[in-house]
Design a protein around this nucleic acid. Structure first.
Lengths: 256, 256
DNA sequence: CGCGCGATTGAGCACTATCAAGAGCAGTGG
DNA sequence: CCACTGCTCTTGATAGTGCTCAATCGCGCG
């Protein structure tokens, strides 16, 4: 049974194991009750104001978290990949403060908040892993604040593309400096605080500079060093996606 | 001895106790080894790239975390009040990825990361409190992304002022809708992604609308409902600054 | 074939940045 | 007591990055 579960939980376990959990922690995690549910691209997993009694984990596909401001504009605050815990704040708060939407079709696991509650008190090592995971999320958040707050459009978008490259590489979803990237230009705009139109023009410029190519929904990084430079990108803030204590080489292509 | 420590740690304990830790957790926390160090206003506590072997906790005063982008511009990603844990990411990463600077003079406690490491594994309830605290930080981060990403200058600044009002109220540092606010207009700009000049003009407009008054380094909120409306402010994302499970009334003045 | 969504292009505008300069104020040292 | 310095706030004029509005195009799909 635990074997069957771990089949779906594989991306999650891969993530947790970066934090060096013990086999006992791992077994306890795998024995956690949860419910799997498939979602179509664009479907909402959680809406602001919903009562949240369980915590969502991405099993496959991409999803985003966003908020709507008074003017009606939307801001994406996070993009979550397989293995990510999506809405710890919502689950622990009891009420969702943001919206969770699928970017692609995919499966979400719902774990009762009470079960998380209980297991983390009995397995401090597991709680540690989840805590570190939250700290990484916070580190990404803070970099996004910098991105939308103080960088121009070209730099913002280049930075976003670099971040995905590194995160997908950690997830084993990057090959030969290209990755599938299921965001429309409007969604890229919502993530970077720009309009879709300006994103369009900026992407053209990035392609024109020979930094990237785009085919359908995939990005090919043609010049990693150039893109990282254009995006003012230093992967240090993503470092412990990989290991708590380790000092790893994190460049995607060559050095940064 | 634990009594002497708790005198300095009072703001920290007040914060942790919101998460309902046990007396044993509390005692263990108070027994943590730490070093106190006073800093002058403007002094740096940590600089990007520093080796980080301990975790900083604000005992008194305000401090900020910021990063510098390629163009030389600065973005403040967080303002920390007494009781806040400042740089968990840095401590756990081993190397600082952002800068920590005092906004006012104040005292910082340095707790060895190894001690945090050890105590949290032995006291899951305490780890829970720290984890929840990190989740709250992340929640604030994500709201800041929305703020700088999709709101105009007037809304951004009004939102910032509202957030401080609520957070300071939680800390008992707000009286009669006024609080000391030690940020210069340039620093407000660095926190909101604006220039100091534009902050100046926007603050004038806010004052002109009768929403706030400013005296020296303090803010008086003259019309809470108006300011909250102008700032598109909903305190839900700060909710569990107060309690994990509770549903509290969080309005500062009247309802929001 | 019509429909809808996303990408693209053009023109004009607006919000915010930049540049420049002056004023008020606190601290410092002669 | 009075320059002198530095910082913050303030104001004006100008420029620019990115937004708004509007329309076209390409493509997958029922």
């Amino acid at each position: 049974m635990s074997k069957r579960f771990s089949q779906f939980l594989a991306p999650v376990l891969r993530k947790l194991e970066r934090y060096e959990i013990t086999p006992a922690d791992r077994d306890a995690f795998v024995a956690l009750p949860f419910m799997r549910k498939p979602f179509a691209a664009g479907a909402h997993v959680v809406r602001e104001g919903d009562r949240a009694v369980s915590c969502c984990v991405v099993l496959s596909g991409f999803c985003i978290r966003y908020k709507i401001v008074a003017s009606g504009a939307r801001q994406i605050v996070a993009v979550n990949l397989p293995g990510d815990f999506v809405d710890l704040p919502n689950a622990l708060l009891g009420t969702a403060v943001d919206n969770v939407q699928m970017l692609t079709s995919g499966e979400i696991a719902f774990v009762p908040a009470s079960a998380i509650d209980e297991i983390t008190l009995r397995h401090p090592g597991l709680q540690r892993a989840l805590w570190l995971n939250t700290i990484l999320d916070a580190s990404i958040f803070s970099e996004w604040i910098v991105n939308v707050g103080r960088r121009d459009a070209r730099t913002r978008i280049a930075h976003l593309l670099c971040e995905f490259a590194v995160r997908l590489r950690e997830n084993g979803q990057l090959e030969a400096n290209s990755y599938t990237f299921p965001m429309s230009q409007e969604q890229i705009g919502d993530a970077t605080g720009l309009t879709a139109i300006h994103v369009n023009r900026t992407l053209q410029a990035l392609r024109g500079s020979g930094l990237i190519r785009m085919e359908k929904r995939s990005v090919i990084i043609e010049d990693w060093d150039g893109l990282a430079a254009a995006g003012d990108f230093d992967p240090a803030y993503l470092r412990f996606a990989c290991s708590v204590s380790g000092s790893h080489d994190h460049s995607v292509g060559q050095s940064v």
